[in-house]
Write a protein that binds this DNA or RNA. Structure first.
Length: 581
RNA sequence: GCUCCCGUAGUUCAAUGGAUAGAACAAGAGUUUCCUAAACUUUAGAUACAGGUUCGAUUCCUGUCGGGAGCACCA
C-alpha cells in the first residue's frame, strides 16, 4: 500500500464517521511542499454539499482521524487539510522498499491483454526523425504497462504493402542500378523511390503505371512478388539495426502484407452485413444517419452542409486501402490474440481515421478498448509539418550518430582516462538516452520544431543528468570497504535533504500507475528529474562514506534505493545507466 | 466552410479544478584541501484577449485573435 492509499483509507473512515455514510475521499500530493506532503479538499467539497462551514467541517474530520504514527494534519486556507508525513514514517516506508523487488509498485494490469501498435515504418524507405516519437513513446508505454502487470503484445505494423511499392516496382524495372543495390540496398531503393515519386507528380502516365504495378503485386504476380520480397528483406535488416541501437524490441512484425488474404473476404462480409455499400464504384462505410453529426466519425461538414465522409475499404479499381487493412488487423488481434485493449501510437493527423475504424469495428462486432494515443508533430524550420514524403528530412540514423558523437566528445573531455571500449559504450548509452529523454520528458501532444541542439542537449533536464546521479551512487559503492546488506539496513532521517529524498523514493509507486491514466511518460520523466535533483542535493549535503554508523548504513541504504529507483525508472523509459561516465 | 490540436518567463518545456503558476537553457552572484563540479547554492523573469460557471480557473464553457493539422479512392 502506498502512503497515499494509506492516508486515503484513514481519511475515508474519518469521513464516514462525520457524514454517517461511505464517502469518497479527495486527497492528492500537495501542490507545494510548504503546505505539506499531501492535501485534501474533501472538507470544502463536502461543506458545499452539506451547506456548512468548510473549516469547521475540516476540524471534525481531523477529530476523527487516527494517523498519529503516520502523519500530522492541519487545516489551512479555505478548508484544506494538509498532511505532513512524519520522518519516521518515511523511514519505515523506505526500509520496506529496500526488500521489495517491485519498489512498492502495484500490478493493476494482471489479466488484461494489450496490443500496442507503434513505430510502423514503411519499408524500402529510411526512418527519419518523424518516426522517433511513435517508436520511443510506444516502447516506453510497453515497458511501463508490462511493469504494471499487463500482458503486452508489441506489434510492429510495418508498411510493406502500400502504394509506395507501385513506385518502387516501376523504378526497379526501369532505373534500378544493380551494382548500387548490392553495395547499399536501402540507399539505392530510396534513390529509385524518390525519382519515381517526383516524376509521378507531373506525369499522370507514370502514376498510372505505378498503380498498375501495385495492382499486379496485390493480385499475386510472381515477378512483382519476388522483387517485393527482396525489398522487404533488405529493408528489415536496416530497420533491425536502428532498433538494436535504440534497444527497441517487438513481439511481432505483422505488416500490412500479412493481412492481404483477409481483405477481400472482409469487404464481402461488410457488404453482406449491410455495413458497407458501393458508391462511385468504391465500397464505403457510411454514417448511419446519427442525430448528432458532429459526434459521428463518418460525417464531416463541407461548404454545403453535413456530408458523409466514408471510410473506403475497396477502391473502384479493386484495390484495398489503409482502412481495410486496419480493420483486418483489428479482427486478427481480437480473434487470435484475445486483445482486451489495442493502443495505437500514431500522430494527431490520423485522428479521424482512427475514429472511423474504431466505429466501424464496433459496428462489425469486433470490440475492444481501442485507444488512439496521439502525439504532436515534429516540424521543420519553417514550422511546417515534416511529412513522410517531403523528401529532405533528417534521417534517424544521422540523429542517433550525431547524439553518440556529441556524447563521446564530452566524455573525452570530462573523463579522459576511461578505456576506449568503455568510453564508446558510455557514449552510446548517454547519447541515445539523451535523444529518448528529450522525447519522453515533454507532453506527447506538443508540437515541436526539430533542432539538433534541442534533441541532443546533454545538460539541464536531460538523461545525462539522471545517469550522472546514478554514477555518483555507483562510485560510492565502489569505494565502500565494508559489507553492506540493504535488506537488513535501518533508515533514519534527520537532515531535510534526507527526508526529501525519502519522500520522492516513496512516491515512485504512486507516480507509475498515473502514467497510464493518460498515457504520459513525461510524468515519469519529470518525476525522475525531481528524484535526481533530490539526490544531488543530498549528495552535496550528506556525506555517506565519512559518516559514522548507524548513519552511514542509513545513508547507504538511501543511495541503494535511489539507484534502484533511477535504474528502474530510466529502464521503463528505455534508457540505460552506465557504471561510470 | 466544418472538425480536431495548440497559444505559459528572452528561449525550450511542466502543472490530476486548488493556495504565492514549476523546471531547464540563456543572464547575474557564489561553492571544490571532502564519496565523480556532467554537480550544488542563489538573484531576476510568464498564463494571447474578453466574458461566463465555481468558495477557487493555465485547466471547464462561450466568443475574438493567432499558429498547425484533417475532411472519398495515399498511408
Amino acid at each position: 500500500m502506498t502512503l497515499l492509499q494509506n492516508l486515503e483509507s484513514h481519511l475515508a473512515s474519518a469521513l464516514q464517521s462525520v457524514t454517517g455514510e461511505p464517502t469518497q475521499p479527495n486527497i492528492a500530493p500537495a501542490a507545494d511542499l510548504r503546505f505539506g506532503d499531501y492535501q485534501s479538499n474533501s472538507a470544502m467539497v463536502l461543506a458545499k454539499r452539506l451547506k456548512t462551514n468548510p473549516r469547521a467541517l475540516a476540524q471534525s474530520i481531523l477529530d476523527n482521524l487516527a494517523i498519529d504514527d503516520l502523519a500530522t494534519a492541519k487545516i489551512d486556507g479555505p478548508g484544506f487539510i494538509n498532511f505532513t508525513i512524519l520522518p519516521q514514517a518515511y523511514a519505515s516506508f523506505t526500509k520496506n522498499l529496500l526488500a521489495d523487488p517491485r519498489l512498492g509498485v502495484p500490478q493493476p494490469g494482471l489479466n488484461t491483454r494489450i496490443v500496442i501498435d507503434f513505430s510502423a515504418p514503411n519499408v524500402a524507405k529510411p526512418m527519419h526523425v518523424g518516426h522517433i516519437r511513435s517508436t520511443i513513446i510506444g516502447d516506453s508505454l510497453c515497458r511501463i504497462a508490462r511493469f504494471l502487470g499487463y500482458n503486452v503484445i508489441a506489434d510492429n505494423h510495418i508498411g510493406d504493402w502500400g502504394t509506395q511499392f507501385g513506385m518502387i516496382l516501376h523504378g526497379w524495372k526501369t532505373i534500378l542500378d544493380h551494382n548500387a543495390l548490392s553495395q547499399d540496398p536501402i540507399k539505392e531503393l530510396v534513390r529509385v523511390y524518390r525519382i519515381i515519386n517526383a516524376s509521378t507528380k507531373d506525369d499522370p502516365a507514370t502514376l498510372e503505371t505505378c498503380k498498375n504495378e501495385l495492382v499486379k503485386l496485390q493480385a499475386g504476380d510472381p515477378e512483382n512478388l519476388a522483387i517485393w520480397q527482396q525489398c522487404i528483406d533488405v529493408s528489415k535488416l536496416g530497420l533491425e539495426k536502428i532498433y538494436s541501437i535504440l534497444d527497441v524490441k517487438f513481439d511481432h512484425w505483422l505488416g500490412e502484407s500479412f493481412y492481404n488474404d483477409m481483405l477481400a473476404p472482409l469487404v464481402d462480409d461488410f457488404i453482406e452485413k449491410v455495413l458497407a455499400r458501393e458508391s462511385n464504384g468504391a465500397i464505403c462505410i457510411f454514417s448511419d444517419d446519427s442525430k448528432d453529426p458532429s459526434q459521428d466519425p463518418f460525417k464531416v461538414h463541407r461548404e454545403d452542409g453535413w456530408q458523409d465522409n466514408p471510410a473506403i475499404i475497396r477502391k473502384a479499381d479493386g484495390g484495398f486501402l489503409y482502412a481495410t487493412t486496419d480493420l483486418a488487423t483489428i479482427q486478427y488481434r481480437i480473434d487470435t490474440w484475445n486483445a482486451d485493449q489495442i493502443w495505437y501510437i500514431v500522430g494527431i493527423p490520423q485522428q479521424l481515421h482512427f475514429r472511423q475504424i474504431f466505429e466501424a469495428a464496433n459496428r462489425w462486432g469486433k470490440s475492444a478498448n481501442f485507444r488512439h494515443i496521439a502525439f504532436g508533430s515534429i516540424l521543420g524550420e519553417d514550422r511546417k509539418l515534416m511529412k513522410t514524403r517531403s523528401g529532405d528530412n533528417v534521417g534517424l540514423t544521422d540523429v542517433l550518430e550525431e547524439a553518440i558523437d556529441r556524447a563521446a566528445k564530452i566524455i573525452a573531455e570530462k573523463n579522459p582516462t576511461l578505456p576506449p571500449d568503455e568510453a564508446a559504450q558510455i557514449a552510446q548509452t548517454v547519447g541515445i538516452g539523451a535523444v529518448k529523454f528529450a522525447e519522453l520528458s515533454q507532453n506527447r501532444l506538443t508540437d515541436y520544431v526539430f533542432a539538433w541542439d534541442r534533441m541532443l542537449a546533454l545538460q539541464g533536464d536531460t538523461a545525462p543528468y539522471l545517469q550522472y546521479s546514478n554514477v555518483r551512487i555507483r562510485s560510492i559503492f565502489r569505494k565502500l570497504d565494508t559489507d553492506f546488506d540493504p535488506t537488513t539496513a535501518t533508515i533514519s532521517l534527520e537532515k531535510n535533504e534526507e527526508i526529501h529524498l525519502a519522500r520522492l523514493l516513496a512516491r515512485f509507486s504512486e507516480i507509475l500507475p498515473q502514467v497510464l491514466e493518460d498515457f504520459r511518460p513525461n510524468i515519469l520523466a519529470n518525476y525522475l528529474l525531481e528524484l535526481a535533483r533530490a539526490f544531488h542535493s543530498f549528495f552535496e549535503a550528506c556525506p555517506v562514506l565519512k559518516s559514522d554508523e548507524p548513519l552511514k548504513s542509513s545513508r547507504l541504504a538511501l543511495c541503494h534505493l535511489t539507484s534502484r529507483t533511477l535504474e528502474t525508472g530510466l529502464g521503463l523509459l528505455g534508457i540505460k545507466c552506465p557504471e561510470r561516465m
